[in-house]
Write a protein that binds this DNA or RNA. Sequence first.
DNA 1: TATCTAATTTAATAAATATCTAATTTAAAT
DNA 2: ATTTAAATTAGATATTTATTAAATTAGATA
Lengths: 199, 199
Amino acid sequence: MQLDKVVNYHKALADPTRIKMLILLADGELNGQVLAEKLYVTPATITHHATKLREASLINERRDKNTIYFSLNDYFIKNNANATANLIYRSADAGMSDLGDNHKRLKESVLKNFFTAEGRLRSIPVQLKKKLIVFEQLISKLDKGRKYSEKEINEFIKSYHDDFATIRREFIMHQYMFRENEIYELNPPEMWASWEALA
Amino acid sequence: MQLDKVVNYHKALADPTRIKMLILLADGELNGQVLAEKLYVTPATITHHATKLREASLINERRDKNTIYFSLNDYFIKNNANATANLIYRSADAGMSDLGDNHKRLKESVLKNFFTAEGRLRSIPVQLKKKLIVFEQLISKLDKGRKYSEKEINEFIKSYHDDFATIRREFIMHQYMFRENEIYELNPPEMWASWEALA
DNA sequence: TATCTAATTTAATAAATATCTAATTTAAAT
DNA sequence: ATTTAAATTAGATATTTATTAAATTAGATA
């Protein structure tokens, strides 16, 4: 269940000292001593908070001699927020209606640029919006209601892109599929992390 | 200071029972008794959580006779998430000349400050937004459609900055270029992780 | 080897918080 | 005016968590 993940993400951000740490790190990497000084707490406290931020994937670390430098993990800070709305609204109006022209155009452009003429995936988009378009294109090739073994899923993804592990993980993360006892199955579209939540 | 607001927002979502309440409410309004029953807690507990959710503007209430019906406040659930990233990224560098203006101004400022008169890159910006501006400036000097060897790419980057390895890696990471069999080539701009995603 | 430095762990404490039961309030309905 | 149903408040308890001082670890460096 990803409930815990969402809760932990918010717990990580539910403390003023940790938010201040992130604000400081937005200016560039800093080590524990410096953070402690700027925030008027002891290094032990920084270690404590760094652990929580690390567990939520909000920071990265780099060691240089005895010093550990912390920096932001941009990706997770930006994208985890969506996971919350997606979790809450999974059954809500993911319906048709206002598929704006913009999105239609973006979709065309993404499908054209990220897929080869043979239909292979060139690379995984970095921008979430585009990534979801790509994933939904792949997902549309799977059968609703059918149960897939992990091996089958891997083979399926590999027919589009070599990095099947990443993509398989993201399929779960964005709730296109769910896994139970090593068996994978599509979720209903209402549960997908579709682009509409991102406006 | 909006720090408290952001912290409170995350505190409100940092509890599994409250997230479950919101998930239930996504299907439509419910009163306290029903919520208590579905979540296996007492009405008093629901009152407690409702107070926190109300303080974070995540729910609305409507009274009908003796019954109070709770419902989601869509607006705040969808929009407060951005406030966090904004707080983290915006309040950094508050002293510099790029205060929340349009992108054109920021771009001018970045190009002016991060490049020498001779066009060399002084340093790699830490802030993602600025970093992408710098990268796009470099990328604009490469030829679309042309195939580059790794050595050529290294030489090209070195003409701007000594740390060619980092920059080359980031070119790939942010999808300005792709690499195949040691050959580098520009991606179309639609694939770039451009600044627009960060607003 | 001994020493220095940054970070972590440990143990203790104080504050915050999630939950319950029991009592109280609110606003009908009888 | 009494009764009833839903919600809130108050008080108690157990858990979590933010913080610190002190001890320990992990890497340099002399």
